[in-house]
Design a protein around this nucleic acid. Structure first.
Lengths: 146, 146
DNA sequence: CGACATAGTTAACTCCTCTTAACAATTAAG
DNA sequence: CTTAATTGTTAAGAGGAGTTAACTATGTCG
């Protein structure tokens, strides 16, 4: 069963608003911190999925190992991640977020979600409840469908 | 009244999923079309707000007029927008989407929202209805609060 | 008209990030 | 052990996209 035309329309309108607002705030965050989009992408990878090697970062970003290595180097110099030797395979550099890196990751997430949280302020408790249930449902289905 | 801890948690989880999925599909779209993020941003500006001048594009992107002019030049060469003289003020180059540019804008929007539409497929009609109402409400409030 | 402001373009330069290629270190396979 | 594969780094160079400065064309105002 395909979504109705009405549902599709609502979804697209919502997506437009979401992307527009999130991106605007996120861009400001990036320019304040001086990080590039790709650099923050690496932080998010480590934040969500834990430590990994340099090649893995490159694959996720769709760039060569060399480019990934260079990007990692910049983040290390900024004190956002650390490179340690993996005891199981000493060829691998295990990349881990520092405290500073973790804090910055969370600040970035907050920058993208703050507008939505503020939006929730404007709702009645009943509306908040309905929204919460709807988003929780969508999130749950999305995570199992990924 | 601030949103409850539970609401905040749900919102953040939802935002994470939304950004992750949308960005992944959108990145693929960009690499397939060969457009940069900023270039697509110009298309979206024209798609949503109609024709405008070069300086206006620069302001929105937060770059100099020169940079905007160069970006516009690339889009013109790609056949995505046209530059015509504004009859009211002949200094101004009126930037307009071509048919190709409009189609590409819509394809980009679709690329970012398709996963969500597919998600709606997996819902019961009652769930779809609840989601539709919730998102419509959020969209409406967001647009008036912007 | 004449001085100044505004819209856009172009040139020269810088910065960032990518690529390929060569390399070192480590592990896996025959 | 020897050879091959894998992980990561480094160097050299290409390209994208930004900046400032100079310039043209047009509009505004005293």
């Amino acid at each position: 069963m395909s979504p109705t035309e009405q549902t599709t329309k609502v979804i697209r309108a919502w997506a437009e608003v979401f992307i527009h607002r999130s991106l605007r705030d996120f861009r400001r965050f990036l320019s304040e911190t001086g990080l590039s989009h790709a650099q923050f992408g690496i932080l998010m990878r480590l934040y969500h999925n834990g430590p990994c090697g340099v090649s893995h970062v490159g694959e996720q970003l769709g760039v060569s190992r060399a480019a990934a290595s260079q990007a990692v180097e910049r983040l290390v110099q900024l004190g956002l991640i650390t490179r340690t030797e993996d005891p199981k395979d000493r060829r691998v550099r295990r990349l881990t977020l520092t405290e500073k890196g973790r804090a910055l990751s969370e600040a970035g997430i907050a920058a993208r979600t703050r507008w939505l949280e503020e939006l929730a302020d404007a709702l009645t408790p009943e509306q908040q409840e309905a929204i919460t249930q709807a988003l929780a449902l969508l999130t749950q289905i999305a995570q199992t469908n990924d």
